[in-house]
């Protein structure tokens, strides 16, 4: 098994609340970059980096084109642009048509992460009101990465996690919201030991 090199997270309705639980629960050993796509109206999306910066010790940025991914850093997709990760471990943006009626779309980020990092990706689908992310999470799993879904019972909007579970099948790790931080920590640390 290889190391987890990046964590990608997607969600819509209810996902910001979930992040407020997960992000502060991640210890320093979880050093890899974290890249997040949330579907929010532009006015609210602009506030997310500021909110996350206040609740954790990591640097938090709104994603900019060509920014190299740096450890201990969180990148949040900007409204109206798709966010992708390139093979050279830098971000790229696009204003291609919306996918699943969304721009940014979770599927677009996840697919690019699977392509760029193969088994080095952990993908996490949080609470949300549509099916975006399901296909991308499946692609992460197919490329050898780890597919994680917030347990629908702990999501304020279970549609997105349920869609992801259906698409990925039994290979998905379904984790209760309060346990996601610990799960990610174990995953990242265990993989580093195993892969060394």
């Amino acid at each position: 098994m290889s190391d987890i090199e990046v964590i990608v997270i997607g969600g819509s309705a209810g996902a910001l609340d979930a992040l407020l639980t997960i992000v502060p629960a991640l210890p320093e050993q979880v050093s890899c970059p974290i890249v997040i796509v949330l579907h929010l109206p532009p006015g609210q999306a602009n506030l997310v980096p500021g909110i996350l910066a206040r609740i954790c010790a990591r640097a938090v940025y709104e994603a900019e084109d060509k920014a190299p991914l740096v450890d201990h850093t969180i990148y949040v997709a900007a409204p109206n642009y798709h966010l992708l990760i390139e093979r050279n471990r830098a971000l790229s943006l696009s204003i291609d048509e919306p996918v699943q009626l969304s721009r940014p779309a979770i599927d677009v980020l996840f697919e690019s992460a699977a392509d760029a990092y193969g088994p080095g990706v952990a993908g996490l689908v949080l609470s949300g009101a549509n099916q975006d992310g399901a296909q991308g999470l499946w692609q992460i799993q197919q490329a050898g990465g780890v597919a994680i879904v917030q347990a629908p019972a702990t999501a304020s909007c279970p549609i997105m996690p349920e869609a992801a579970m259906r698409r990925v099948g039994p290979a998905a790790h379904v984790v209760r919201l309060e346990d996601i931080g610990t799960f990610l920590t174990k995953l990242v640390c265990a993989k580093s030991r195993g892969g060394a």
Binding site: H82, L84, I85, E86, R87, S92, S94, D96, S112, A116
Partner: peptide, 9 residues
């Protein structure tokens, strides 16, 4: 061109 989005297109 940036590969990730080109591949999608």
């Amino acid at each position: 061109y940036a590969q990730a989005s080109l591949k999608r297109r």
